[in-house]
């Protein structure tokens, strides 16, 4: 279920996580495990997502849990990453996004982002 903002345009962040929920098993994440926490800043309001990866299965949740790595950034920017418009690695190098904990997991998590449009 996609959430629309007042323009009637689908919020790409929510669309991304909904896609993950419905996408079933992710072969690209076979034999990978860990919890990625994504902290988004939506104009001062914080939004938090957790993606638990377990040998190819992914579970998306907003429920607090221990995470192996935390990816912190602006929600707009995440939306652009989630649609393939922006790149997560260069965002970190520029200091627009920060990465704490296990880098490996986030690098692998990137496989879920689509090709640039």
């Amino acid at each position: 279920m996609a959430v629309s903002n007042f323009d009637g345009v689908t919020d790409p962040t929510t669309a991304f996580f909904d896609g993950l929920r419905q996408g079933g098993r992710q072969p690209a994440l076979a034999r990978k495990s860990g919890v990625v926490r994504i902290d988004l800043d939506d104009n001062g309001r914080s939004e938090r997502w957790f993606v638990a990866i377990d040998d190819g299965t992914v579970e998306v949740s907003k429920r607090n849990q221990a995470a192996d790595s935390t990816f912190r950034l602006d929600k707009q920017l995440f939306g652009r990453i989630a649609t393939g418009e922006a790149n997560a690695v260069t965002a970190v190098l520029r200091g627009e996004a920060s990465l704490e904990g296990d880098w490996n997991l986030v690098i692998v998590f990137q496989r879920l982002f689509p090709s640039p449009s």
Binding site: A28, G84, N104, I107, P114, S115, P116
Partner: peptide
Amino acid sequence: EWQGSRRDD
């Protein structure tokens, strides 16, 4: 881990 996954020109 860094293996390519997308089509990125």
